[in-house]
Design a protein around this nucleic acid. Structure first.
Lengths: 183, 183
DNA sequence: TCGAACATGTAAAAGGTTACATGATTAC
DNA sequence: GTAATCATGTAACCTTTTACATGTTCGA
């Protein structure tokens, strides 16, 4: 599921500008996909070339003009069809886990700072999801994704808070143990 | 943390071939980063150009020859330094969550199949991590990452098993509810 | 009036996947 | 003998990020 398809999906929920869609990526989509303007605007342009969305410029002479995009009927059909053919996969890329994997090469202070950094991130993501959890008008599917996000961030925070201190303690005692015994 | 840096890290743990490193990405690294041969071999070539690794061909005339890579002293230093400067971030790209977000556009059968698909994936990842959990010789950092993986997959499975059936039931009753009320 | 948010877009570069091409060795 | 695993590499392509460029509107 690339950015183009998710932009199309966003417009199936409600019409809006590229800027609006960016905000969606920073809120409702944030715990499963990110995207920058540099991928959103070209995606919208291509969707329009393919006839899956259209836009009309909003009245009022602002600059640049607000381009409100709207999905077309072929677009709506194409989205539903594409969706059904996408395998349910997941992939994580976690620099945090990479860092901790090689923690024996960091100073204790650095490691501690990294753990604090990721804890703050987890905390703010969790707070956001809890805040939107009971908004009215959510479909069961959307509610399900929010609940999953909450469950995952809670598990990550619980793990970090219970295991973090002992990781740091062991790290302080034995700064550079030669690791081995990999699968 | 790109593939190049992770390959360098892998060689800091133990020397090996590109093929060996691929297996590491499929096992010990699998729950936080994936990589294909098409990124690993060029990464090793570039690390060697930069003097961070060297290789020697293993005796015995097989084809193609086994190139055993080994980190150099500058490589070891460069890795430790790079590591300290990487922010502890995480990003998920979950087609599964994207799919469920738009579940109202899928048939109940399709949705059910997708949930079964991801459950099998979670299950096998969890089993793998539990199996390697108590291997001897792991550094505290490596152990920490495995524990986190276990905690996360358990939370995901628990969420899926407790909320999946009710999602499917509500989906069956109201096939295409108009969702709204997004943040 | 000043900074944050709104608003659109492009070009270059980075990063990675997929598919192809080739062939040996090992375990059953 | 035959299938799986071991083993290396390239090239074309795809996706996405980063950095730049520009200007407006709104609220404090």
């Amino acid at each position: 599921m690339n950015i183009r398809l998710l932009c199309l999906g966003a417009l199936c929920l409600r019409s809006g500008t590229g800027y609006d869609i960016k905000k969606l990526f920073e809120s409702a989509f944030s715990h499963f996909q990110s995207a920058s303007f540099g991928s959103i605007y070209p995606a919208l342009a291509q969707l329009e070339r393919d006839g899956l969305v259209t836009h009309h410029n909003e009245p009022g002479a602002r600059h640049p003009e607000r381009k409100v995009f709207e999905v077309t009927e072929p677009g709506r059909t194409a989205f539903a069809e594409s969706l059904a053919s996408i395998p349910a996969t997941e992939q994580m890329r976690s620099d945090y886990m990479g860092l901790v994997f090689f923690a024996h090469l960091l100073s204790t202070e650095t490691l501690q700072a990294k753990l604090a950094e990721i804890e703050a991130f987890y905390q703010s993501e969790l707070e956001y999801l809890v805040a939107i959890r009971d908004w009215p008008g959510q479909s069961p599917g959307i509610h399900f994704t929010i609940e999953q996000g909450i469950a995952v961030y809670r598990a990550k925070l619980a793990h970090l808070r219970s295991q973090g201190p002992s990781l740091l303690a062991r790290h302080r005692e034995a700064p550079t143990p030669p690791p081995d015994g990999l699968p």
